[in-house]
Design a protein around this nucleic acid. Structure first.
Lengths: 299, 299
DNA sequence: GCGGTAACCTGCATAAATGCAGGTCATAGC
DNA sequence: GCTATGACCTGCATTTATGCAGGTTACCGC
């Protein structure tokens, strides 16, 4: 349809500004495959190649440079619209976001001030619990979950992948000895983990990916409690890297054993277009995009 | 998705410029229901009502006026893009359009010069035959058909409704007497129509909608031939109003008996995004939009 | 040539958008 | 109140877009 013309220009602009197709995709909340398709479609529509592929990403061609100058003009006008909407339709009321405990306290907590500053009349309820509030029951406006909900009147989209690793304190190693291989964990080592009966998400069953047969000695339903146990030298456990790497008292164990999980952004289908809900979604997406290196923790 | 933001602004602009939601929908090749949805979505996103409904259509609210000023800025930049694309990517080659014979000769023929002027290096093949060329076999780039193709690698979208009526010459009435009711056609009148065995589209079977049991005395597979027969006083027949009303030698018979049919715009799914194919589609859509009163022939 | 990084492609399942038709509602002129 | 005109709503089928995963290709530094 003709109306995709402007939105493909918007996609083009995002790529030009990001310098990388995948990064632009993430900024706009699209899959990279989709962003590639949109770019191809725009190029077909204009009959011109807009980017050359380089090792670092996409570099504008001459035609792309010319187009960018014009699309920047559109963007300037669009920015004025967003600004007017921001002031004229200043968000008020409250926004309740239910997130995994660790994500809330160790990651989002340093982004809340920016959100509050941007929306002075909006009250943000950041519910960081073991277990999530129900969107179906309208207990929260937005949820960040560890698995994608398949049923119910909700819309889910991938927020970000994140990495986890085993961590322990040097204090613990001094007491219990080093770990050379995963098999070492089956004997003579104390493991910290979740309470199997109280897993609020099957994705929290990490140890099965480290080595079969590992048994947890000290259990908690709270990732914050687990982190403190590890920092105090109580044992070895799996933490998201954005927590483990941030705690100076901890070091990674078998760092090559890197587990990946995904955060999902979930909203209710009836309210996902509300301005304050979209503001929350955009804020979350921008936050994880800005710190995706920390979330992915390649090394 | 966020990328719909710009396309919804494009939809808003079309409504603001057209003054009517349905007209704007047609300009952008959307259904009016869809256009309404997009408007609602934009209003939800911006938290503002953009139009007030009046009897004549949509009138901008204050918020709408402010938004329009900004979106016009985007449109000015977008116009520059279209202009650059038009000149930089000046269309060349050929474009073959297969259309129903009457539509080609009586309607499109007066629009061809404008298209040719706009695309001086593009050769236009307007194939106006009884029966259409096959898009599946790439015999044509675009087809205008009387029914919507359901199978094959093609994309169909409604181009326009058009009206048909019975017509005859005053010369004929002088010879055969007047027609007061549809039933009069079953006796003492000569009917002109298509050859049943050679109907290239079931939609051409009009007489069944006038009155049951009507039999055609003079048959032709060519609408132009039928038109000439009627103009020469040979009988009564059904013509599209854009033909019948244009022929000074003809008058409508039982004008309240107005038949509606639909033209469908068909392209091949692999080539519908090609610039020259899109140019042809846009030209066709604009042409029927410009003369839709003639096509619909309310009175 | 190898390896790291990014993009592209394809198939397929899923989600979202769209089109259509029918019915109802809103606006105004008469 | 009636009528004409336009918009809105809903349900549902269809179409289109998107996401995902896996594999391949392209770009370059080493």
């Amino acid at each position: 349809m003709q109306v995709t013309a402007w939105s493909d220009l918007q996609a083009f602009l995002a790529i030009a500004r990001a310098g990388q197709l995948a990064r632009a995709a993430h900024v706009l909340g699209l899959d990279a495959t989709t962003m590639g398709r949109r770019l191809r479609r725009l190029e077909a529509r204009l009959g011109a190649s807009l980017f050359e592929q380089t090792r670092e990403g996409q570099v504008l061609t001459e035609a792309g440079e010319r187009l960018l100058a014009q699309v920047e003009g559109m963007a300037a006008s669009a920015a004025g619209i967003a600004e007017s909407a921001g002031s004229a339709g200043d968000l008020a009321g409250s926004l309740r976001i239910s997130v995994p405990e660790g994500f809330g306290s160790w990651f989002l907590s340093r982004h809340v001030a920016a959100f509050a500053a941007a929306h002075p009349r909006l009250t943000l309820d950041l519910v960081a619990n073991s277990g999530l509030l129900s969107l179906s029951k309208r207990e929260a406006d937005i949820a960040v979950s560890l698995s994608r909900p398949r049923a119910g009147p909700v819309i889910a989209r991938k927020l970000s992948d994140y990495a986890l690793r085993l961590y322990a304190s040097p204090v613990y190693f001094a007491r219990a000895g080093a770990v050379e291989r995963a098999a070492d964990l089956t004997r003579g080592h104390d493991l910290v983990g979740y309470i199997p009966d109280l897993l609020y998400d099957p994705g929290l069953d990490y140890l099965g990916e480290i080595h079969p047969g590992l048994e947890v000695r000290m259990r908690s339903s709270s990732i914050n409690a687990q982190q403190r146990l590890l920092a105090a030298g109580a044992g070895i456990g799996v933490l998201p890297c954005f927590i483990g790497d941030a705690d100076q008292a901890l070091v990674p164990v078998l760092p090559e054993r890197r587990i990946l999980r995904t955060f999902w952004l979930v909203t209710h289908k009836d309210t996902h277009q509300l301005a304050r809900v979209r503001a929350g979604k955009d804020w979350l997406a921008a936050a994880v995009q800005r710190e995706r290196e920390i979330l992915l923790a390649h090394q």
